Simulated scan of single mutants.
Amino acid sequence: MTSSVAELTRTLVSIPSHEDETDAGDAIETWLREETAARVTRDAVGNVLARKGPTGQDGDGSTDRPSLALVGHHDVVPPADSQVRDDPGREGEYLVEEREGRIFGRGAADMKGAVAAAMVAFRDATPPDGCDLVFASFVGEEVGGVGARHAIEEGFVPDYAVVGEGSTNYSKPGVTDVVVAHRGRRGTTVTAHGVASHASEPDAGENAIYRAADAIDRIRALEFPAVDVAGEALTGSVAVTEIDGGSAINVVPDRCSFTVDERTVPGERIDFGVLSDIPDVEWTVDQNLPPMLCEDDAFAGRMLAAARECQSGDPELVTKPHATDAGWLSQAGTTCLVYGPSEPGEAHTRDESVSISVLERCRETYRQVAETWPESGGDDRSREENAR
């Protein structure tokens, strides 16, 4: 096993994990067992979790000490053909290349590079007296946070977490910023019901498309939700994205449905009750990825101070437009921040890559925060549901 962040990133990126995360999880688990004395576990869905105290291991298995978690995910979206090897004996592996100070390959930016940086930081850091350091790499982030939700249901709710999703080049080029809030995503299907009739006698029926059109007009008239965070407005959005209705050119339709993509902000949602007086219209929430907001100024300040110590630029507290697993953790009660190497425009692309120097920057920032937070002794709130 290797201790280099770059080499560990290359190893993880080479392992296919868009359909089955098992092999990538095996590599992470094995490395943690060989490189640390932490208590390492693998749960029923494949999440890899590790926990240690100031002595380097979780000797008594207690979960009532204040904790900081370094969090990532090792699943990825499907690769492009150009990102998969076809040479004999290595068919199916992801192609990994290093050039111009960057590592290229599916998952390099989103987010195996950050996972590697967190693993090395977890190994090297000594948490404050009376506090625990936790590592978690989840499965299923790209399909709605499957792993994070399972872990939370099983009791994984650390006091604090740094989620290693992208925060580089947000405020300005060349810096890795600290994200204190991000948007969520709610997907909703609205269905209008009517009464079918022959199109030559439209008044004999009730046109479901017309009812759906009335509902769409109501949705379009809604104001986008917004909140003020870190001196800027974090604004959501609402868009009708799909529509389906009708069975034939000569039939008044009895059903029409459309989907609404809503980018949510902390504490705000659009109110579908504006549709309640349109006859025979109903709506169902299909996906609801929660937003995240950190209201702990001390935690954000400590993270920002560490970020500034680990780079020559001037990072800032910023917001992020995309949902992450920090939303699920925040909803469960964990105080979260996002800090990671990925840059806008890198994730999910055919030439996805990550900067090696920024990986090292993140590793050192994670280590510094892990050695100074939580403050020794923590606060007085119950620890019964903290990270296992």
Rank of each mutant, 00 (worst) to 15 (best):
I28H: 06
I28Q: 03
W31C: 09
W31S: 07
W31K: 08
R33D: 03
E34G: 06
E35A: 14
E35N: 12
T36G: 03
A37P: 00
A38E: 14
R39C: 04
V40Q: 12
T41P: 14
R42Q: 04
R42C: 10
R42V: 13
D43T: 05
D43K: 01
V45A: 06
G46D: 12
G46L: 14
G46N: 11
N47Y: 12
N47F: 11
V48G: 07
V48C: 04
L49E: 09
A50F: 08
A50K: 12
R51V: 15
R51P: 15
K52S: 06
T55P: 08
T55Y: 02
T55E: 15
D58A: 13
D58C: 09
G59I: 06
D60M: 10
G61A: 08
G61F: 13
G61H: 05
S62K: 13
R65T: 11
P66G: 09
S67C: 14
L68E: 02
A69E: 09
A69D: 10
A69W: 02
G72F: 09
H73G: 02
H73P: 00
D75S: 04
D75C: 02
D75P: 00
V76T: 15
V76D: 11
V76M: 07
V77Y: 09
V77G: 00
V77S: 07
P79A: 05
P79V: 09
A80M: 09
A80R: 11
A80D: 15
S82E: 12
Q83P: 04
R85P: 09
D86L: 01
D86W: 00
D87H: 08
P88M: 11
G89F: 14
R90V: 12
G92F: 00
L95I: 03
L95D: 04
L95R: 14
V96Q: 08
E97L: 07
E97S: 09
E97P: 06
E98T: 15
E98Q: 15
E98M: 04
R99A: 03
R99N: 00
R102H: 11
I103E: 05
G107A: 06
G107I: 01
G107F: 01
G107H: 01
A108G: 10
A109L: 10
D110K: 05
K112D: 01
G113C: 07
G113H: 10
G113V: 10
G113A: 06
A114V: 05
A114R: 05
A116F: 11
A116R: 02
A118I: 03
A118R: 10
A118Q: 14
A118T: 03
A118G: 11
M119N: 07
V120T: 06
V120G: 00
V120D: 01
V120F: 00
A121T: 03
A121K: 00
A121D: 12
F122K: 10
F122C: 10
